[in-house]
Design a protein around this nucleic acid. Sequence first.
DNA 1: TATAATCCGTTGTTTTTCCAACAAACTTTT
DNA 2: AAAAGTTTGTTGGAAAAACAACGGATTATA
Lengths: 220, 220
Amino acid sequence: MINELEKIKDSVLLQDIKVEELSSMLGCLRGVIKHYKKGEEVLSEGAEIKKFGLLTEGKLQIVQYDYLGNKSILSIIEPKQIFAEAYAYVNRLPSMNVEALVDSTVLFLDSDKLSSPCQNCCSFHKQLVKNLLFIISNKNVNLTEKIECMAKRTTKEKLLTFLSLESIKQNSKEIYIQYDRQGLADYLGVERSAMSAELSKLKNEGILEYNKNWFKLLQK
Amino acid sequence: MINELEKIKDSVLLQDIKVEELSSMLGCLRGVIKHYKKGEEVLSEGAEIKKFGLLTEGKLQIVQYDYLGNKSILSIIEPKQIFAEAYAYVNRLPSMNVEALVDSTVLFLDSDKLSSPCQNCCSFHKQLVKNLLFIISNKNVNLTEKIECMAKRTTKEKLLTFLSLESIKQNSKEIYIQYDRQGLADYLGVERSAMSAELSKLKNEGILEYNKNWFKLLQK
DNA sequence: TATAATCCGTTGTTTTTCCAACAAACTTTT
DNA sequence: AAAAGTTTGTTGGAAAAACAACGGATTATA
């Protein structure tokens, strides 16, 4: 257990919590460590979620199957990230599955215990709640921004909306993006090749310059 | 102030908090009441947010201007709802404005104080945090579902994804939706007339029956 | 009840996207 | 440094969506 804590002590969730407090936290939040083999299911669709997970080791995938059975990957969970936290706080059944992409270890924490501090009002609770609110709020803002992009009707507009949001965040007309072309197309919900074509057009029109992950918005 | 509390005492944020505790809560969270005339700006783009709002009276609109200056309405805030809570917990500047659609009254509460209970660990803090986590998590799930619909490539798929999600939520093949046609088209990010045409097609193909707000998914 | 206003479905045209296939550029491996 | 694999840009035809315009139905208003 100590070993696992070592790996996640600088995660966002545990930010600014003293190392000495971590093990008492585990008890308070009913921490449970579970191991999964590659390909195993960590959480399954429709199963009630009372604890959320903090990945200590490995890699997970959040996937969803639509009404036709088509699989789509919602996100990849890397070590130190938490998952399923929103469903833990909402009495709705999740419509997605979590699968282990490689052998993985997860620390599950009781969501109720986190938000309902014990009598002695342990000092770390305050910080944990703050961190969790930050994480969920941040996700919220990110989802809203993604919707802002996807709501545009044309690929060109989706691209420009995405790039100007990045430009604001990076506080510069020159920006570096985290996605490759396929990743960006997936994010915006469009076809990669069509998006590439649209990027070329924007370059020809003198609206944009780019090279690999570097982009520059010209004029206004 | 007492009068304002009366109006919001059964809001989701204040759920399961005793009426006697409400006024001490106001002090603890540095509650501030503000009034706005119709058309006035409640929060403006780029201005740091330290407090989130709880609308006690009136109606607000969250709007956004894109890189071309086009205005789009993100949501309408009705009394008892909170707003700007995600931005209050994230150190990012909001990219939207909040405007009063009619004369309105807002109770602003300090987000820091909410997540950092005072020394005496007032009992309502626990419940407030729980309620807030519920609200934000719920929003999160809703945003994710919207993205699930919008990510589909065709209007037909967007419609069927939306309807089967509703079917699951309402636990029935027969469902009632909250939007009119224009509202649904906006939600899915498509053209109303094209969507109407697609609905007719689905009806002809025997996949769907509908009349106004009532829909029935046939077969699988 | 008449009138106005809004909502909804239909159709034809234009624009945009998807899709598939391929070639060029760049990376990684051997 | 060659070979293999991956990523990105390009193109043309097919499919879908946007757009505009209109008429009928429903709802709200005078």
